[in-house]
């Protein structure tokens, strides 16, 4: 994957890890371009998600260690510190309107996980 010039509307895919590095129905954290990205393997739904690893509540680097699950149909992750939960789809905090995390495009190809920044 050749990194190309980063224009605003262009996704650059970065190799993060291989599929086995992220436990099924769990998460992990990868260091990409100096940024901590939380990656989730939502095996139960056959979906993958990527978000900030930092929780906006108390700036803890912990989202990747959080438990994932669903609220209604919405896939979500809970910060292990104070259990703020965030939508994995759009990053909105589901139990406190004041917070939001960034989400990133994610791609699985030939058993490798790529994150778009």
């Amino acid at each position: 994957m050749e990194p190309t010039t980063n224009t605003k509307d262009r996704i650059v895919w970065h190799l993060a890890c291989s599929v086995e590095d992220i436990p099924e129905d769990g998460g992990g954290c990868a260091l990409i371009e100096g940024k901590q990205i939380a990656i989730f393997n939502f095996a139960r739904r056959g979906e993958w998600y990527a978000t900030d690893n930092e929780c906006p509540h108390r700036q803890q680097m912990a989202i990747g260690r959080g438990m994932i699950g669903s609220q209604g149909e919405e896939p979500k992750v809970a910060c292990p510190f104070h259990k703020k939960t965030f939508s994995l789809k759009n990053g909105q905090c589901l139990n406190d309107d004041d917070y939001k995390i960034n989400t990133f495009p994610i791609l699985i190809k030939e058993n490798q996980v790529y994150i778009g920044l």
Binding site: D25, F42, R44, R45, G66, M67, I68, G69, S70, Q71, G72, P75, K76, A78, K83, T85
Partner: peptide
Amino acid sequence: TYGEVLNEFGHGDGCEVCKP
């Protein structure tokens, strides 16, 4: 396993309450 319990007796994808 959690997966079995959720499949047998639950619905949806679980959360930070029921998992622990």
